[in-house]
Simulated scan of single mutants.
Amino acid sequence: MRSPAENRLAYQVELVRAKRLAAGVTLDENWWKRLKARWPHRLSCEMSCGPGWSDLIEAVNELVDQEGVDPITFSQIKEKYGSLRMYWHGIDPVGRIDALVDAAEEISEGVCETCGNASKMRQSGGPGGYVHSACDDHAIPGSSIIRVKTESIRTPIGRFRATTIEGDE
C-alpha cells in the first residue's frame, strides 16, 4: 500500500513524463543537464543513475518547489542496491522532504533505470551479485528476479536505508 507521499509523487511523475513527451524531449545520456539547468543550486551534485529515473528526479524537485522549503541542496543522487538514493541538506521542520525522498526511493524500485518503463528488481551473478531495477528489455542477461526489502531508519545524525535481498521470487 502506497503512502500519501508516494501517491502524490507517482501522480507528479506521470505529469512530468506527459509534459516531456509532449515537448518531444527524449531520454538520453545528457538528461541531467536539463535538470541542472532548471535547478542549478539544488542539483549541483553529481547524478550517478540512468536516464530512466530523470522524470522521477524532476517530479521530486517540482514537489520540493511546491513545498516552499528552499533552500535545500542535494549532495548526492545515485543508484544503490537497484534503487534511487537522494541525499540532501537543508531545513525541513515538518519532514515533507524526507517523505518525498523516501517515496522516490520506493517508486524507483519499479521503474527501469534505463528507459523509465515498469520494471522488476533483478540480481545478476547469483547471491551477492549486482542488483538493478530493469524492464525485460534492459535486464542484464541471466539475471534473476528478486524481492528487495528496504527500511528507512531515522537517527539523530541522519536518515539511513537498510536493504535486505530475499532471493528469487
Rank of each mutant, 00 (worst) to 15 (best):
M1G: 14
P4R: 02
P4E: 15
A5L: 08
N7W: 01
N7D: 14
A10S: 14
Y11L: 14
Y11N: 10
Q12S: 10
L15R: 15
V16G: 03
L21P: 00
G24L: 07
V25T: 14
L27A: 12
W32I: 02
K33Y: 06
K33H: 05
R34P: 00
R34V: 12
L35N: 01
K36Q: 15
P40N: 08
H41F: 11
S44E: 14
S44L: 06
E46T: 10
S48C: 03
S48Y: 10
P51W: 10
G52R: 08
I57G: 08
I57T: 04
V60N: 02
D65G: 12
D65I: 10
Q66L: 15
G68N: 07
G68W: 15
G68T: 14
D70G: 14
S75M: 03
K78N: 07
E79I: 00
G82H: 06
G82E: 06
S83N: 06
S83G: 15
S83L: 02
S83A: 11
L84H: 02
H89K: 13
D92V: 09
G95P: 03
R96W: 04
L100T: 08
V101E: 13
V101P: 04
I107M: 14
S108P: 11
V111E: 01
T114W: 11
T114P: 00
A118R: 13
S119Q: 01
M121H: 03
M121G: 03
Q123H: 00
P127A: 13
S133M: 09
S133K: 07
A134E: 02
H138W: 02
A139D: 00
R147Y: 07
K149P: 01
E151P: 00
R154D: 06
G158S: 07
A162Q: 13
T163S: 13
T163C: 08
T163K: 10
T164A: 13
E166C: 08
D168H: 13
E169W: 13
